[in-house]
Design a protein around this nucleic acid. Structure first.
Length: 559
RNA sequence: GCAGGCGUAGUGUAGUCUGGCAGCACAAGGGCCUUCCAAGCCCUUAGCCCGGGUUCAAAUCCCGGCGCCUGCACCA
């Protein structure tokens, strides 16, 4: 199994798919460059992603910055959850997460700062669980890269692109003319300062993401017709491996409707881009491994040489993110849901008496009054506790009146729920590479059997020999193809077989060869990568035919 | 981050123990030959991970760093 990785890495570096970054300085772990071939493959993959997930479903696409101010990641919960406190044993050197060490002594280990944690360790005489040695100082470890915005503002590099969408919800909701469901996609890089990223392109510190946030009204009934009948390989929370049709999975309530909708789309996407769908499954997260924002998550895993690897996740994030941004920013992140019939409601409304509040709270009076107006008072008037900017103010009962009134409500406000399919593009591309790699049985030559749509270069144009005008004819044909928008290249070096082999290694699906017959009757041979079969066609029909072959509208066997 | 192993042309490796001109194969570039799947012949390019130390002399020994692999821990 490691062999395929070694062979692939060899081709990747030699032929320009990817390699470890900053090579001349010894390389830096967790960072990879895509070369001339790999970049085009990734670009083609992202184009198909856009087509399948954005254009076909009419989603929005946005492009937000990678750097965000501290408050955004405080609100999202990443700052807290992505920071671990660790201690290292002074004698054996093993590292431990402090929350694990102190959880038996403290009720909320996550709530403590480094000094408090150290105190707990000292007070309870906690020692190294492995060797009993003395523990060192508490160290903080951030999984987020931090930087500086301007002179002294702290900024973080996004660990996911999602927050760039959430913070824009009110604007996007308006642009969508206040309708749900609303899907917003974003393609961008995410950054995580992994402690030891040692799985090649599978675990990078800077990686390509493509994410969708689907905002839905949790009270809307899911439209069952959206789910196509498609067999899905599921690995449930209980460890059960089942093959179940999407419709059945919906009826049994095993998986949320929207998540199922995406599962089916993802299976078809995998098929189109050339991931072996017999090596794909959806694995449900256990409750304890759910991310801090998620209620239910299904990972899409692909079987490669390293075992089952998560290439994307579909999370049910509920109202978590919008709720938090609403609380931290004070901006209303809610959507409006109209009642079928307007409702008449009796309610008691608070009317603040500004002449009392004004002198009492000065500049904060307006904000306090605003909050009071949203409160429901039942029974006796009493002192109110109002929180503004993190401070609590006590408002005496004489500072407001309560009026009973009957109002007609057209609808209500609510925080939309979010379903998030989040794609790790690098991992998907790597899966494609592993699944399409093979060695020819007779010769042992290496071939990347990647889909023509994904292939970086679509056609090689070779003169049988670089003489007698075959070379200039070949250059001419290459130029025609390039002008037609087909990425072609010319190669005259070495024997024809060698050139085919070079093309096979980077997955060039079609090779055009110009021979002596071409000079007589203007026909060329076209060779298909996987079968190595050749057919003879006229130069005039070549560009159209190649275009159809690449787009999958024409099979090579049909020529 | 810890422990162990490893790091030599683009790639794969020999040489390291026992310090003394860095070698081989493939790939790549040029030429000859060649009428369709890495053929052959000639030529060429190109390397000791980085830094320090020991030594007359370091790829080789020592120290530090970086990177890769395996395990632990961490992570999805």
């Amino acid at each position: 199994m490691r062999e395929i990785r070694a062979k692939l890495n060899d081709i990747a570096k030699r032929r320009g798919i990817f390699w470890n970054s900053y090579d001349i300085y010894g390389g830096v772990g967790g960072f990879y460059d895509y070369g001339p071939v790999g970049s085009l493959m990734k670009k083609n993959l992202l184009d198909i992603w856009l087509e399948e997930f954005v254009y076909k479903d009419g989603l929005f696409l946005i492009d937000a910055p990678a750097i965000g101010p501290e408050i955004v990641y405080r609100a999202s919960g990443h700052l807290e959850k992505f920071t671990d406190y660790m201690v290292r044993c002074k004698s054996c050197g093993h590292a431990f997460r402090t929350d694990e060490l102190i959880k038996d002594y403290v009720e909320f280990p996550d709530a403590l700062g480094p000094e408090e944690i150290e105190k707990v360790i000292r007070d309870h005489g906690i020692v190294c669980p492995d060797c009993g040695g003395e523990l060192g100082e508490v160290e903080e470890f951030h999984l987020m890269f931090s930087t500086r915005i301007g002179l002294d503002k702290i900024g973080f590099l996004r660990p996911e692109t999602a927050q760039g969408i959430f913070v824009n919800f009110p604007t996007l909701y308006r642009i969508n003319r206040e309708k749900l469901p609303m899907g917003v996609a974003q393609i961008g890089r995410g950054y995580r300062n992994e402690i030891s990223p040692r799985q090649g392109v599978i675990r990078q510190r800077e990686f390509q993401m493509a994410e969708i946030e689907l905002f839905v009204d949790p009270e809307d009934k899911f439209n069952e017709d959206m789910i196509e009948d498609y067999p899905l390989p599921l690995l449930t929370m209980n460890g059960e491996n089942i093959k179940i049709s999407a419709k059945e999975a919906y009826k049994s309530g095993l998986v949320d409707g929207y998540i199922l909708y995406y599962m089916v789309k993802i299976m078809k996407f995998m098929e189109r881009i050339g991931v072996d769908t017999s090596k794909v499954r959806f694995r449900q997260h256990h409750r304890e491994e759910l991310a801090h924002y998620s209620k239910d998550t299904w990972d899409c895993e692909v079987l490669i040489s390293r075992g089952w690897v998560e290439v994307l996740g579909i999370s049910y994030r509920g109202a978590y993110d919008l709720e938090h941004h609403m609380r931290y920013s004070g901006v209303d992140m809610r959507a409006f849901r109209k009642f079928k019939e307007p409702k008449k409601v009796r309610r008691s409304r608070v009317i603040p008496r500004m002449e009392i509040l004004g002198p009492m709270f000065k500049g904060n009076a307006m904000k306090i009054a605003q909050q009071m107006e949203e409160m429901e008072i039942e029974g006796e008037k009493k002192e109110l506790k109002i929180e503004v900017n993190g401070k609590t103010y006590e408002v005496p009962s004489e500072a407001y009146d309560v009026v009973d009134e009957e109002v007609t409500l057209a609808g209500e406000r609510f925080i939309p729920h979010v379903v998030e399919p989040s794609f790790g593009i690098d991992r998907i591309l790597y899966s494609i590479l592993e699944h399409s790699f093979y060695e020819r049985e007779d010769s042992g030559y290496k071939v990347l059997r990647i889909k023509p749509e994904i292939a970086a270069i679509k056609a090689g144009v070779f003169p049988l020999m670089a003489k007698d005008g075959m070379d200039s004819k070949a250059r001419e044909i290459m130029k025609t193809l390039r002008e037609r928008g087909i990425n072609a290249y010319y190669d005259e070096s070495g024997s024809i077989g060698r050139r085919y082999a070079r093309a096979d290694e980077i997955g060039v699906p079609f090779c055009i060869t110009i021979d002596y017959q071409t000079l007589k009757d203007s026909t060329v041979t076209i060779r298909e990568r996987d079968s190595t079969e050749q057919k003879r066609i006229s130069i005039t029909e070549l560009p159209d035919m190649l275009d159809s072959l690449i787009k999958g509208k024409l099979e090579f066997s049909e020529i």
